[in-house]
């Protein structure tokens, strides 16, 4: 019987991940992904498809020569994350993010926007 019991247990030991591993995807950004804005914004805001964990979610903004222009003080609330930037002048800015959603999955990505007409 012990052997039979083991056979019956086996399937349950193989029990996989019960839930779908979903991830936080970038839903919306301000300035918009790939957009061109006439004047430099004072902050960059990202909103995601899921709630974020503030302790493990971060973002940075660099200018066309690769220098950081964000203040480093990233604030996270619910599914949005924002950081103030000191963007000076026209050019392409790159936003890089890495977030942990509350269902414990890490996602990352980047996009750019342009300043100037």
């Amino acid at each position: 019987m012990e052997r039979r019991a083991f056979i019956a247990i086996l399937p349950l030991l193989l029990l996989g991940v019960w839930e779908a591993m979903a991830h936080a995807y970038l839903d919306h950004a301000s300035p918009l992904v790939g957009s061109t804005v006439a004047t430099a914004p004072s902050q960059v805001t990202l909103s995601f498809t899921q709630q974020l964990e503030p302790s493990f979610s971060t973002m940075s903004v660099t200018n066309s020569s690769g220098q950081r222009v964000d203040s480093g003080r990233v604030s996270v609330s619910g599914n949005t994350m924002r950081v103030p930037i000191r963007a000076t002048g026209a050019g392409t800015y790159r936003v890089t993010w890495r977030v942990l959603s509350v269902d414990t999955h890490t996602t990352q990505g980047s996009f750019s926007f342009r300043v100037g007409r």
Binding site: I7, A8, P11, L12, L14, L15, G16, V17, T49
Partner: peptide, 30 residues
């Protein structure tokens, strides 16, 4: 009944393997 419970569990194995695969597959929504 004992035999069927074991067979039922075997299908359970298969389901759980599928569930395991589901866990690493991004949901259809995305």
């Amino acid at each position: 009944l004992v035999r069927n419970s074991v067979v039922e569990s075997t299908f359970g194995v298969a389901i759980l393997v599928v569930v395991g695969a589901l866990g690493v597959t991004p949901p259809g929504l995305h």
